[in-house]
Simulated scan of single mutants.
Amino acid sequence: MGDGPSTRWVLRATLAVARHPSLWPTALRQVFVLARPRWWAARPYLPLPDRSYLRFRLQTAYGDPDREPEPRDVVAYLHWCRSWRRLDP
């Protein structure tokens, strides 16, 4: 993931999330929560997470900052985000 996720991975993760319509609002929210500040002001003009943050998270999750996450882990993360948000008063 040195230059970002592969197109193949994005497709696989999108399909995994697409199978869970109840997670769509959470997924959309997380896209913007994790987006680097002022993402609209610099190329590629997409709400992508900061590379150093993403590398850190991949290192802590998989022990390898260049590994692409498993799509099922993305779904599990979104389930966790949704349940955590429900606990927030």
Rank of each mutant, 00 (worst) to 15 (best):
T7Y: 09
T7E: 14
T7I: 11
R8D: 09
R8Q: 02
R8T: 05
W9F: 10
W9H: 11
V10H: 00
L11P: 09
L11N: 02
L11I: 00
A13Q: 13
A13R: 12
A13C: 13
T14Y: 00
T14L: 08
L15E: 15
L15V: 13
A16T: 08
A16D: 08
A16Q: 13
A16H: 11
A18S: 10
A18Q: 10
A18W: 11
A18E: 08
R19T: 07
R19F: 06
R19K: 11
H20L: 07
H20I: 07
P21K: 10
P21C: 01
P21Q: 06
S22P: 00
L23Q: 03
L23R: 06
L23V: 03
P25N: 01
P25E: 03
P25H: 01
T26G: 14
A27W: 12
A27S: 14
A27Q: 11
L28I: 13
R29A: 15
R29N: 15
R29Q: 15
V31D: 09
V31M: 10
V31K: 02
V31N: 02
F32D: 09
F32I: 08
F32Q: 05
V33Y: 13
V33C: 03
V33T: 14
L34S: 08
L34M: 02
A35V: 07
A35W: 02
A35D: 05
P37R: 09
P37T: 01
R38L: 03
R38M: 04
R38V: 09
R38W: 01
R38K: 01
W39K: 04
